[in-house]
Amino acid sequence: MIVFDRVHKRYPNGREALRDVSLRVAQGQMAFLTGRSGAGKSSILKLVTLLERPTTGTVTVNGQMTSTLPSRAIPAYRRRMGVVFQDHQLLVDRPVYDNVALPLIVADTPFREIDRRVRAALDQVGLLGKEKSSPSELSIGEQQRVGIARAVVGKPTILVADEPTGNLDHALARDVMRLFKRFQEVGVTVLIASHDESLVREFAQHEIKLNDGQVTK
């Protein structure tokens, strides 16, 4: 569950990214953040992933208030969360396997367990057998699915995605959304920033519309 309570976010350059934002994404819900670029979608995701902290107001994720979380607790906090980016953010000099295994490696997971879970995650996104490929050998759609496998390999309770279909055509985008839907169906809370209205109409259980740093819907 993700709860924002009267959150303001002002960046050091003075830009007011979020103004008095209150929102709530229930456990196991698939929610979309919509709005134009600069409306505050990315700021909300940064606050959820603790890349940023609110200027005022509180952000509570799975009952944990992020503003009181000490810096040294952030890695463990992030391990309970899967993040997918628009530009996949894969390490191109490492094979697919290493990319997907990264969240498990940083969590000191035993090797055998890593092996099992990496294969399971690749299987879920339909890329089993591509372990040894380099990300650059894969299509854009496949790269994004590797990114999703990496996000879910740690069995997160929350999945956060920033424009995950921004670089994909409509058919591929729907594939990716169906993938997110499958994780939502097994209880994962999914929060996706997207400006693709048709996808939002098709998949959103909850839409949070932003305009100029404020929630309008």
């Binding site: 890695p75 906090y77 940083v106």
Partner: peptide, 16 residues
């Protein structure tokens, strides 16, 4: 840098 950012985002500690 990119690798470090990703590592930290997926929960890698500074020590790691």
């Amino acid at each position: 840098r990119a690798e470090i950012e990703v590592t930290k985002l997926v929960g890698g500690s500074n020590a790691f």
